[in-house]
Lab assay of single mutants.
Amino acid sequence: MKVTIEENEETGKFTIKVKTEDGEEKTIEIPKENLEEILAKLPPNVEII
């Protein structure tokens, strides 16, 4: 699983794009305050880009 994290400076939010092993892609946008909480919940086999 690969996770790409991009900061949107205009909105102050982060866009998180997840690509699973089977090629499925999902995108979510979260507030900056929630980034550490989300990262802590990721499984250890995740590659963060």
Results as ranks from 00 to 15, higher is better:
3 V>G: 01
34 N>L: 15
34 N>C: 15
28 I>Y: 15
8 N>L: 04
45 N>T: 07
26 K>N: 08
12 G>Y: 05
12 G>H: 05
17 K>A: 04
26 K>R: 13
24 E>C: 14
40 A>I: 04
49 I>N: 05
45 N>Y: 11
46 V>N: 02
1 M>R: 02
23 G>I: 01
10 E>V: 11
11 T>P: 04
11 T>G: 08
3 V>K: 01
10 E>G: 08
45 N>C: 11
5 I>E: 01
5 I>Y: 03
35 L>F: 05
37 E>S: 10
31 P>Q: 10
23 G>R: 00
34 N>E: 14
8 N>E: 03
32 K>W: 13
29 E>R: 05
47 E>I: 14
44 P>S: 10
3 V>L: 07
19 K>P: 02
41 K>T: 11
33 E>D: 08
49 I>Y: 08
37 E>L: 10
31 P>V: 08
8 N>D: 08
18 V>H: 02
23 G>A: 03
30 I>M: 04
43 P>N: 07
25 E>Q: 05
21 E>L: 12
6 E>A: 06
21 E>M: 10
1 M>Y: 10
38 I>E: 13
6 E>H: 09
14 F>W: 11
13 K>H: 10
4 T>Y: 15
47 E>A: 08
35 L>S: 01
11 T>D: 09
41 K>I: 07
46 V>C: 10
25 E>F: 10
29 E>T: 12
16 I>M: 07
21 E>V: 11
33 E>Q: 07
8 N>G: 04
33 E>K: 06
3 V>Q: 00
13 K>C: 15
37 E>K: 09
18 V>T: 06
17 K>Y: 14
29 E>A: 04
48 I>Y: 09
27 T>V: 13
20 T>Q: 07
2 K>S: 09
38 I>Q: 05
36 E>T: 09
13 K>Y: 13
10 E>S: 10
33 E>F: 08
39 L>W: 04
17 K>F: 13
10 E>M: 12
6 E>Y: 15
16 I>K: 00
40 A>W: 06
23 G>F: 02
19 K>A: 08
45 N>Q: 06
26 K>T: 14
31 P>G: 12
48 I>E: 02
1 M>N: 03
37 E>C: 13
3 V>T: 01
46 V>H: 05
30 I>C: 13
2 K>M: 11
5 I>P: 01
45 N>R: 05
26 K>F: 15
41 K>F: 10
10 E>N: 09
27 T>S: 07
40 A>D: 04
47 E>D: 07
40 A>Q: 07
42 L>T: 01
44 P>E: 07
14 F>P: 01
28 I>C: 15
18 V>W: 15
31 P>L: 13
19 K>W: 15
39 L>K: 01
46 V>L: 05
37 E>T: 08
8 N>W: 02
48 I>C: 08
6 E>F: 14
40 A>G: 07
25 E>S: 06
32 K>P: 08
29 E>M: 09
17 K>N: 08
39 L>Q: 00
29 E>Y: 11
27 T>C: 12
30 I>K: 00
27 T>W: 15
32 K>F: 10
47 E>S: 09
42 L>C: 08
47 E>V: 12
45 N>K: 04
43 P>D: 05
41 K>Q: 13
32 K>T: 05
14 F>M: 10
11 T>V: 03
7 E>V: 13
9 E>V: 14
12 G>L: 03
18 V>M: 13
3 V>I: 12
13 K>V: 12
17 K>Q: 05
47 E>T: 12
44 P>K: 10
47 E>Y: 09
13 K>P: 01
25 E>C: 13
2 K>W: 15
22 D>R: 06
48 I>R: 03
35 L>K: 01
22 D>F: 10
12 G>Q: 05
46 V>F: 09
48 I>A: 02
38 I>L: 14
33 E>R: 06
12 G>S: 04
39 L>V: 03
48 I>N: 02
3 V>M: 04
6 E>L: 10
30 I>W: 04
49 I>E: 06
1 M>P: 06
3 V>S: 01
20 T>D: 08
8 N>M: 03
35 L>I: 06
47 E>W: 10
9 E>Q: 10
25 E>P: 02
11 T>L: 05
9 E>K: 15
9 E>L: 12
10 E>R: 10
46 V>P: 03
7 E>T: 06
49 I>Q: 06
43 P>T: 06
7 E>W: 15
11 T>Q: 05
24 E>Y: 12
23 G>V: 00
26 K>E: 09
26 K>H: 14
36 E>P: 11
7 E>H: 12
37 E>N: 07
35 L>P: 00
21 E>F: 10
44 P>G: 08
35 L>N: 00
34 N>K: 14
1 M>T: 08
49 I>R: 04
5 I>F: 03
30 I>F: 08
2 K>R: 14
4 T>E: 05
26 K>Q: 12
1 M>V: 08
27 T>A: 05
21 E>A: 13
6 E>V: 11
36 E>D: 11
44 P>L: 09
48 I>M: 06
5 I>V: 07
31 P>K: 10
39 L>N: 00
14 F>Y: 12
44 P>R: 08
43 P>L: 09
26 K>P: 01
25 E>R: 02
45 N>F: 09
16 I>G: 00
31 P>W: 14
13 K>W: 15
20 T>M: 11
9 E>T: 14
47 E>R: 09
23 G>Y: 03
30 I>D: 00
35 L>Y: 04
36 E>G: 10
2 K>H: 07
43 P>K: 05
24 E>I: 11
15 T>D: 02
45 N>M: 07
15 T>C: 07
10 E>P: 03
25 E>H: 04
2 K>G: 03
45 N>G: 13
4 T>C: 13
35 L>M: 06
46 V>K: 02
27 T>G: 03
26 K>S: 12
18 V>N: 00
30 I>E: 00
46 V>E: 02
34 N>S: 12
37 E>Y: 13
21 E>G: 10
4 T>R: 07
45 N>L: 06
49 I>K: 05
4 T>A: 03
32 K>N: 04
35 L>Q: 00
18 V>I: 15
16 I>Q: 00
20 T>A: 06
29 E>P: 02
9 E>C: 15
17 K>L: 07
44 P>F: 13
28 I>H: 03
16 I>S: 00
46 V>R: 04
28 I>G: 01
37 E>R: 09
18 V>R: 00
47 E>F: 11
23 G>P: 00
39 L>P: 00
49 I>G: 03
6 E>D: 04
14 F>K: 02
3 V>Y: 09
42 L>G: 00
29 E>N: 06
17 K>W: 14
45 N>S: 07
13 K>Q: 11
3 V>N: 01
4 T>D: 02
11 T>C: 12
8 N>P: 01
28 I>P: 00
7 E>L: 15
27 T>I: 14
45 N>H: 10
33 E>L: 05
4 T>M: 06
4 T>Q: 05
44 P>N: 08
23 G>N: 03
5 I>T: 01
26 K>V: 14
32 K>M: 08
27 T>Q: 06
1 M>W: 14
8 N>H: 06
34 N>D: 14
15 T>V: 12
